[in-house]
């Protein structure tokens, strides 16, 4: 498929939700502003033009000035994928959760929260996932001062769960 056509499809599906759309081979790079993030991801998933229903990857990066979320969504039958980037407010990083749209992103959002402290609003269970529960700070922020904290053995205790149940 021609890149121009691919770009058109994505622009059509996203309407005015995206700030920039670029096609590069079968990869479409989309930049979205935070308020439109969930709507844009939903459009990419449900629109028949894009049909990106496969949650391939979710991560974030921090440059020291700006923190950005990176979603990668793929359409398996159509063999194209979208790399959606969304800048965040670095002082108070928040983003809407899409764990209800893709249960596969549940753990990925927990990981981003764990490493960057991004609060995903509407996430069913936003807890640390890889680091110990009592770890202090978010190690992948560029201003993080490396210092081991937390007990390596601490995790959810059966007694806590018993009380929940």
């Amino acid at each position: 498929m021609a890149q121009a056509e691919l770009k058109e499809r994505f622009e059509g599906a996203l309407g005015g939700l995206a700030e920039a759309v670029e096609a590069e081979g079968s990869l479409v790079r989309v930049r979205v502003a935070l308020p439109n993030l969930r709507a844009a991801l939903l459009a990419l998933k449900t629109s028949p033009d894009t049909a990106c229903d496969f949650p391939a990857n979710l991560t974030a990066f921090d440059t020291g000035q700006e923190m950005t979320l990176l979603y990668r969504l793929a359409s398996i039958p159509n063999r194209w994928q979208a790399l959606v980037s969304c800048p965040l407010d670095r002082e108070d990083p928040k983003a809407p959760s899409v764990a209800d749209l893709w249960p596969g992103f549940n753990w990925f959002e927990r990981e981003v929260y764990d490493m960057f402290g991004v609060a995903f609003e509407g996430h069913p269970d936003l807890r640390r996932i890889l680091l110990p529960d009592d770890w202090e700070g978010f190690p992948f922020r560029k201003d993080y001062v490396s210092k081991p904290s937390g007990s390596p053995l601490k995790g959810p205790q059966p007694t806590d769960l018993g009380e929940q149940a």
């Binding site: 991560t59 990176l70 990668r72 249960p103 990981e111």
Partner: peptide, 25 residues
Amino acid sequence: TMVSDGSPNPQRVHIRAPSFANLTV
């Protein structure tokens, strides 16, 4: 996924591990 800022070190490396994604189910 690698993010470069032009320096000799990567700015960010993220590993999408298939086991991690598969374990969510």
